[in-house]
Write a protein that binds this DNA or RNA. Sequence first.
DNA 1: GGACTTATTGTAAATAGTAAAATAATTAAT
DNA 2: ATTAATTATTTTACTATTTACAATAAGTCC
Lengths: 234, 234
Amino acid sequence: MTHNYKIEFEKFFSYSLSVDCLIFGFEEGEIKLLLIKRNMDPFKGDWAIPGDLVYPEEDLEEAASRILFDLTNIKNIELHQSQTFGKPDRHPQGRVITCAYFAMVKIDEVNAIASSWANEVKWVPIQRIPKLAFDHNEIFNSSLELLKIKLSNEPICFDLLPDKFTLNELQQLYEYAYKVNLNKANFRKKIKPIPLIEHNEKQKNVKHRPAKLFSFDEHKFERLVNQRNFRFKM
Amino acid sequence: MTHNYKIEFEKFFSYSLSVDCLIFGFEEGEIKLLLIKRNMDPFKGDWAIPGDLVYPEEDLEEAASRILFDLTNIKNIELHQSQTFGKPDRHPQGRVITCAYFAMVKIDEVNAIASSWANEVKWVPIQRIPKLAFDHNEIFNSSLELLKIKLSNEPICFDLLPDKFTLNELQQLYEYAYKVNLNKANFRKKIKPIPLIEHNEKQKNVKHRPAKLFSFDEHKFERLVNQRNFRFKM
DNA sequence: GGACTTATTGTAAATAGTAAAATAATTAAT
DNA sequence: ATTAATTATTTTACTATTTACAATAAGTCC
């Protein structure tokens, strides 16, 4: 930092900062991303990742949290910082640097949607994301890569699944994320070390043998991580 | 982006952006970080990660690249984006958001050091990083975590090692990074799939049986990745 | 040559991963 | 009620990989 801030103040303190918040969900075997339809220029009418400028007194993560809340009414969930994008010409109206965050929500718990933000929102399967506004396709791609890395090293798959889920749903999530087919019996062997709560309840309204419902045992997981040196690995 | 930029221009386009560049090297069995001693306020005299404001027409990565060059004369090496830090009060002189990058250099090829930047620079083993200026300890910690993840998934260890290295040096690098002891025989078995060029040359000036020297076979590696679906995994 | 240090190879046991078959629970038709 | 069909779940056998440990080979230094 060799610059004299007094002299160069105007030149350097003239950037703007935004945060884009990728909201992922899981439904019917597909991981989905919440997109908004922009209701103002630039890129009016285009689909985009929700985002907003960061307020002067606001931390980056706070801003992402605010965007998430405005759109979904969800509070207090983990936000994962992704990459930051700052090409000088990425925003037509000035030098706007954007920092991407992503959140993972239980899609069945999200109802309140569409606000002052955008007149339209929709969940789009991540394998069928359309052309987006700004450099949002690039932001999506790099964030998805990060999501995939975290899915294989941290138990964040359970943030996407409903509170009670079947083992098949868990498997489908990984199959969709990595575009692979997994052997069912082996998958179950592999997830054996992960502490799950087995419910007496079963799947309903299916026309075949219903599967048992499970929940992630977060407390037991924490204990395992701290006491033995257990590591989540998929 | 629901804001009217015309009206709120002054309020929002008043941030500054900096880039911090963590430069990692490997020497005598230790992974080291290049630190500078600040020669101006704030935090004058404190050790810090090298960084500078981003110029108006400059991309983030370009800025990181410039910092790296000013300090080491090294050009055209890969820069890895780490996390971005933007707490409103992180910089005493205004709202400065900083985006961290890290680079990995061959420490023996870096000589030119100390510039207009700082009157003092030094390589510090990453297990003995002192209290740093600003929030630089936080930046270092999160970047180190990312470095460790990349070390286990990409062949970037060879960016740290000299062009010709011994297998022991390679092992020491991983042992130091993850603070573990590895079995020599098994380590050599594990790295078997990685394509290395075996030189006729041997280690010199050691008072024991000299080890063979190896280089990373980048071309063969690329071919493996593309043709079969080979993955680097440590 | 002999002591010493490190490199390199070998082997057996333990662990993890894979494929396929067997069994259980449910719905729906007969 | 019996049976077929479908899917969930468990079991078994097999294969490959990882780990631990021992043995041997190849240099340096005196």
